[in-house]
Each structure stands twice: as structure tokens, then as C-alpha cells.
Design a protein around this nucleic acid. Structure first.
Lengths: 213, 213
DNA sequence: TTGCCAATAACCCTTTTGTGTGATTTTGAT
DNA sequence: ATCAAAATCACACAAAAGGGTTATTGGCAA
């Protein structure tokens, strides 16, 4: 099997050399392309054809988040492992949302970086321990304070049609009931939701996910 | 340092014994509590006081997802590592949303399970490679097809007030413009959004995140 | 059985919305 | 300086929404 090609984007020259050495020392990997920022990264990627990119975030002028964005747009199969000091949510999720495949903190042992490359090549998503935890925490359900307005099924049904832009008349036809009954239901719904009008009810229903779907 | 206490929930007796042996063989860990399902898990946890729980998902009667839910509700600091054959999104995210700290597939080497326990104890979130990848993928921004309706700033402002339940009149007062102008703006907004009425516009604005906040 | 509640329906009346049409003023860009 | 887009205001009219009140029916539970 041919050696996998690795590109490095890191503005600290010493660190860049170090990573290059570390990775190049294995005969599984070959470093091709080593840059201090993401200027013209698309051209570089076309030239280098890397399998994996090691990407710092904080680089002058052209930063790593931009880099992830442009590379992943054109080369979604090129793996990108972030390698950075930042562990704030904002940058983390900015990278992930643009398609970063891994996120390793610089404070971790440099062997992590080496393993991360292997892991990402075998279809995984290497993350530093704290990062993975942070990611999982975003899935926690925020135990909602029972925003239960005791809407009946019928009321939910009618509210849902309202959110779809149905007029009272159309709702009546859809539900096979008279427009007067629709009025009655909506009147009750507005009271239960403590709102004054349809638009407010729709906003509340969507924002608080009151509907079953 | 005292040995960390591990509990095991796994309905396959042979596998349960195997895990028990594997983990108990280390003097870092001590297995206390080993059960074929999550019946009375709360009582068990109170009795065993485990630091980490290894939890299968598919168990008769009382399954692992229920187990995660009830344990994490009362003991959020007790770490739970799922150990299962399932890698479908539904079960995965059901576990994560209730607070599972790790997710290891049974097909992985049993050493993974051992390492996972160490990792979760050191504040990490151990996941099998494919699982981590799946998790990261949920963060990808679905490159929205430029749902840009070319609303002007003023129009967005007015649409936002509408979503807050303001009447035309109130919007006029809020923006220091006549109600006729409000009507005019809304008329344009409805055309741009291809909707017929306020409720539909509000639903579209919220669902497609057309507003700046 | 009685009584409650959800669902249904109707009538009346006022206010709000939505639309068509037209016009003026502001503002930004070329 | 000029042109275009955006923002402003006005009038008229029909349709829809929203609120008050009252009433009937059917199901379910105390």
C-alpha cells in the first residue's frame, strides 16, 4: 500500500517542522505540503492531493476555519483534523459544522496527533477527551419545564393547520367542522397559550415545539 | 487510590461473565453488581455506588435506554458507557440525549471496553470510530439552498415583530411609521415569501431561520 | 346517575388583515 | 446628476380574525 499523503497548515514554524518530522518519520505517511496559513489552500490541495490535512485554527490572515470550509466544499473526502489550542465551543462547532473530521488539542501528547491520523483514515473521528465530552453534551435533552398547555389532540391538530397558513375556513373544511367550531377551538387555544392572536400562537407553537412532529 | 467500582448490565450471561472477568482482572477496577436487565436499577445503583456502568441496550423487559434515563436523572455523575451491537441513529441518539457518556460497539475488540472505562473516568467520552463519526456528522450544516428571499432590513424587522405577535397597529407604533406603511411592507414580504397570510409567513420565517437572531 | 369536559355549532359585532392602486420621499450607487 | 430601489403614506373594499354569549351532544369517570 502506498504511503498516505499528509498536508500541514500551521503558522508556528517550529511546531510545523516538528509535526512534519513526527509524521514523516513513519513510512505509512508522507508529508507533502506544509504551509503557514490557508491562503490559496484550494490550489495547494489540488497540487498536493493530501489524504489528511492537519489544520491549525489561529493563523494570520487566512485562518483554519476558512480553510475547512473551502476544502470540504470542493473535496469532501479529504480528511481534516483540527490541531489547535482552542477549546471554546464557538470555534469547535464552527469547525465541525463545516465538516472537520477530528479535533485534537495541542496540549495533548503529540502521539495523539499521530493516532488521530490513523483513526481518521480508518473512518473514525478522533477527538481529544474533553472535546468529545463537549460534543456529547450538546445532545443532552434540556429537561423542559413541562411547557404543557394541556392542548387537546383536536386543538393541536387545528393549531398545526394554522401554522401551515390555513385560514379558519380552510381548517374547517380540512377537519370537516364548521368555521364557527374552528373559531371556538382557536379561541380556547389562544387562552391556553396566553396569546392574543394567531401569529403569536404559531410562533409559540413552533418555538416551543408544541406540535407532534 | 481505591479501585474504581464498575457495574454491568448485560442479558447475555456468558458475555456478562466475560466482561466481569476482563474488568475484574485489573486491580484498578472492581466489579460490583452484575445484572441481566435494568429492573430496579436505581436500587442497585444506590447499593453498589458504581463509578462506571457498562450498559447493554437490548435486554428483556427493562432495557438499557430506560436504564440510562433513570440513573442519570438521579445520579448524573455516575458514568455510563453503552456497550451494544446497535449502531442505528435512533438508539444512539436516544442514549446520548439521556446522558450516556460513551458508546462502544460490541464488535470492537474487548480491549476497547477496557480503555473506554479508563477514558470515561478521566473525563472523556469514549466512542467507537464509526459512532464518533456519526455524531460529528450531525453537526454538518446542510448547505441550505440559499433560501434568500431578498428581504430588506426593514422588512426583516417588521416580520420579526409580527412573529412576536404584534398587530399591524403595534408594529406601526414600534417602528414610528403609519399603519399603511406596515401594510405595504407586509404585502411585499408576503409576496417575496410566496405566502398568503401572516401566520404562514411567521411559520416560514421561524422554520427557515430567516431572522437575524 | 350525575356531572364534567371535549367537541360541535350558531349569532352578533368590531377590529384586523390582505389586496389593488397610486403617489411621494429617501437613499445609495453609478 | 441621475436612476433605481427602498421606504414612506393614502384610500377603498372585501375577507378574515377575534371576542362575547349560548347551546347541544357524546364519552368517561366519580
Amino acid at each position: 500500500m502506498n504511503a498516505m499523503i499528509i498536508s500541514i497548515y500551521e503558522d508556528n514554524e517550529k511546531l510545523r517542522d516538528l509535526i512534519e518530522m513526527l509524521i514523516g518519520s513513519s513510512n505509512e505517511f508522507m508529508v507533502k505540503g506544509s504551509y503557514p496559513n490557508t491562503e490559496n489552500i484550494l490550489k495547494n490541495v489540488i497540487k498536493d492531493q493530501p489524504d489528511v490535512i492537519i489544520m491549525d485554527i489561529d493563523m494570520p490572515e487566512y485562518d483554519g476555519i476558512e480553510g475547512v470550509k473551502v476544502v470540504k466544499k470542493s473535496f469532501p473526502n479529504t480528511k481534516i483534523v483540527m490541531h489547535t489550542v482552542f477549546d471554546d465551543d464557538e470555534r469547535l462547532f464552527a469547525c465541525l459544522s463545516h465538516g472537520a473530521d477530528g479535533y485534537i488539542l495541542k496540549k495533548d501528547a503529540s502521539s495523539s496527533l499521530f493516532n488521530a491520523i490513523k483513526e481518521v483514515l480508518s473512518g473514525g473521528a478522533p477527538m481529544s477527551a474533553g472535546i468529545a465530552k463537549r460534543v456529547l453534551q450538546t445532545f443532552r435533552i434540556v429537561e423542559k419545564p413541562s411547557n404543557n398547555y394541556h392542548l387537546t389532540d383536536r386543538e393541536k391538530e387545528i393549531l398545526e393547520l394554522l401554522t401551515k397558513g390555513f385560514s379558519y375556513r380552510m381548517i374547517g373544511i380540512e377537519c370537516h367542522i364548521s368555521i364557527e367550531t374552528v373559531r371556538r377551538h382557536l379561541k380556547n387555544i389562544y387562552q391556553k397559550l396566553h396569546v392574543q392572536c394567531g401569529t403569536e400562537a404559531v410562533a409559540k407553537a413552533i418555538n416551543e415545539k408544541l406540535l407532534n412532529n
